[in-house]
Amino acid sequence: MTQLLLFNVTNGLIIGAFYVLMALGLSLIINLSGVINFAHGGFLALGGYLAFTLSPFLGFWGALLVSPLLTAALGLVLERLLIRRLYGRDPLYSLLLTFGLAFIFEDATRFVWGAQGLPVTIPDFLGQPLSPDLFFITWYRLFMVGVVAVSVGGLFLLLRHTRLGIRIRAGTLDLETVSTLGVNVGRLRALNFGVGIFLAGLSGVLAGGQLGLDPTMGAGLLMPSFIAIIVGGVGSLPGTLVGGLLIGVASGVTAVFLPSASEAVMYVLMALVLLARPRGLLGEEGLMT
């Protein structure tokens, strides 16, 4: 029983780490641009599929780096052509637009790569378990957590110490003032969007290595990310981090006792948070309400 619980908590943390990576990208875009990017799941799937196509040429490691970059490049193009027009309008419109994009993404992936699931080949040694005692943790899972930790650490360093990061944080609080101070807000939003989509692409490659690829994978992972953001508090990146890990562990532990409720428990958690602390665990009142 302890073994089982340990297994599921670890599992939950790993899945939670994964939700965090996806949700942080979404969160960045929501905070600075007020856009709920429904197509985030589509970008995620695209990242995974590009890795599938590229890995025979670049190997797993090359694909791990290049496909998120390509995904981000496509994100920048779509931001420039479509999403940029909707900044400052009712969030309804950007939500509908990205919703439509999500449909097109899913259909396009199905058209190009087929409806059947595909694997992303990972290096052999990553597929091994850590040890016979810890049979349930493969090196790949540990590697996933490592990549997430590095990315999250990198993101927070970027936000804290670089000029771009400081501007993003300032823009989240008061975009108008940042603009008055001579910052090119259009470019700032574009870069921020690109960073968010890069994280989505990276999540896609990681997810592909663990779960395999299928056209609906992005849509399935979108809801947990939303819940992670709401639980942590819309507007707070550390909140998203906490929220993601929390719902991962909660659904992992629930899977031990009541497997069929492992999805529902996230929603229960969200309802409880909204009851007890409507702004979210680390959210600030007045910001993004």
């Binding site: 709920i36 809801m223 939303f226 819940i227 709401i230 819309v234 929603y267 969200m270 993004m288 309400t289």
Partner: peptide, 10 residues
């Protein structure tokens, strides 16, 4: 606004 939309979706 956005918060309401996200909570209703979820």
């Amino acid at each position: 606004g956005i918060y309401f939309a996200m909570v209703t979706i979820a």
